[in-house]
Structure formats: structure tokens, C-alpha cells
């Protein structure tokens, strides 16, 4: 029904605002429904934080895709790229010269390389984004299976420590059945998400991208997506 209103020219809300409103309402409604049906778990703060703990990669990729879509493009290869990045980093970590910082650099490198390829082809050669990123999807999938066919476990101690590292929030938490106070925990990925969201909001406030809109397709802003994608690497589920 609400989307019906969106088509009428007289509505005050702009289309994107309306969609945002719908999404927010749906989120709140679903959360309330979950609280009603599972009051034991969804009333805890930890469950709310787990949304961010588990979905940090998704949020970061959404931010990257957001930039691309504002300038009128699309990137369908981010999932495959993310897979390639995780596999490459996992293999680097498992090898003898593996280090966390090396893996981070490798992740950024792969992401930026894909971004440069896509960005150049789309912005300067004016090829349709869908097709180029489709090719990028195939490329990333092909490279992934070329690197390694089976899932691998990363056993490097420093990485495992980073993966299991959690930040506790001492003043928030719940009492368990025995009456012991359990504080909430967040993963470092959430910090990355928050930093990126703030950066992104600042970028949007400066109105560079949204004001210029389609003109910006001629700029290397396309290169931003995958680099945003790859910062999430240490927390990506593929490595587990």
C-alpha cells in the first residue's frame, strides 16, 4: 500500500525517504515480533550486538555498494571478490610468511585491483557496469577455485587470537540463570563498521558524491567499493 502512494506525484515524502521509512518500520516490527516470540533471547543486549558482530561484512559491503549505486552503477561481483579475498588471505596466513598486516595489505591490494579494473572500464570506456562486474564475478570465482578448491582452516595463532578477540562492555549485560552478570561483547569488526559508517556519513554530508550524481561516473570513485569490501577481511566468515 505504501509503495502505491509513492507513485502518486502529490506525496510529500521523496521516494528514497519513503523506502528508508519502510525499511526502518519493518526492522522495528520484526524486532518487536522476535521479542514477543522469543523474549528470553531477544530481550538481551547481546542479541542486538550480535546483529552487528555477525553482519559486519554485510554492512561494509553495503556501504561500498551504496557509493556505486549513488553514481548510477551496480556491482554484482562483491560477493565473489570477498570470497577471493578471504581465500587469498587464508592461504597467505597459512603459509610460512603469513602475517596479519600482510594479509590486510593483500586484501586491500586485491580489492583495489578489482576496483581499478572495474572503475577504468566503466568510467572511462563507458561499458555497462552490470556486464563488467559480471565478468569480474566470473574472474574472482575462477581465481578462487584456481587458488584452492576446498575450504581451509586458518590455524595461525595470531589470527585466531584476533578472531576470538572481543571487546567487553562492562556496564551492559544480563544476569544468567545462576545470577552471574555476563557483560556484552562486541567484535573488532563492529568498530570497523562504526568508523566506516562515520566516514561515509561525513562523505555524504560534504555532498560531493550525491550532488554531482551521474557526473561522478567519470571519476575513480568506482575504485572505492572493493577497497571497502576488503577491509572486512579478518572477520569474514569464509576463513573460519
Amino acid at each position: 500500500m505504501e509503495s502505491l502512494n509513492a507513485t502518486k506525484p502529490k506525496t510529500r515524502l521523496s521516494n528514497s525517504n519513503l523506502l528508508f521509512l519502510i525499511a526502518a518500520v519493518i526492522f522495528v516490527l520484526m524486532y518487536l515480533l522476535a521479542i514477543i516470540s522469543f523474549p528470553g533471547s531477544f530481550m538481551q543486549f547481546q542479541t542486538f550486538f550480535d546483529l552487528f558482530n555477525l553482519n559486519a561484512p554485510l554492512i561494509i559491503m553495503t556501504l561500498g555498494l551504496c557509493v556505486v549505486m549513488i553514481v548510477g552503477g551496480i556491482d554484482i561481483s562483491i560477493g565473489a571478490q570477498c570470497g577471493l579475498v578471504t581465500m587469498a588471505c587464508a592461504m597467505l596466513l597459512e603459509s610460512k610468511m603469513g602475517s596479519i598486516w600482510g594479509a590486510l595489505l593483500l586484501a586491500l591490494g586485491i580489492g583495489i585491483a578489482f576496483g581499478l579494473l572495474h572503475g577504468y572500464l566503466i568510467a572511462y570506456l563507458e561499458i555497462q557496469p552490470f556486464i563488467i562486474t559480471l565478468a569480474g564475478l566470473f574472474l574472482a570465482q575462477g581465481l578462487l577455485t584456481t587458488l584452492h578448491k576446498d575450504p581451509i582452516n586458518v590455524t595461525m595463532p595470531a589470527f585466531v587470537a584476533l578472531r576470538d578477540f572481543k571487546i567487553t562492555i562492562p556496564w551492559l549485560g544480563t544476569q544468567n540463570r545462576l545470577g552471574v552478570f555476563i557483560p556484552c561483547q562486541i567484535k573488532p569488526g563492529v568498530i570497523v563498521v562504526v568508523v566506516l559508517v562515520v566516514l561515509f556519513a561525513a562523505l555524504m554530508k560534504s555532498a560531493v558524491i550525491s550532488a554531482l550524481g551521474p557526473c561522478l561516473r567519470k571519476s575513480p570513485v568506482y575504485a572505492m567499493t572493493p577497497s571497502a569490501v576488503c577491509t572486512m577481511k579478518p572477520y569474514a566468515p569464509g576463513i573460519e
Binding site: L117, L121, I131, I132, L134, A135, G136, L137, F138, L139, Q141, G142, L143, T145, T146, K149
Partner: peptide
């Protein structure tokens, strides 16, 4: 078969 997709991608590009 593992690299076939990469080749396809390069061809499309």
C-alpha cells in the same frame, strides 16, 4: 575446470 571461469571473464572483458 577450476580456471575456466577466469578465462571466460577475461574473454568477456
Amino acid at each position: 575446470t577450476e580456471t575456466i571461469k577466469a578465462f571466460k571473464a577475461v574473454f568477456i572483458i
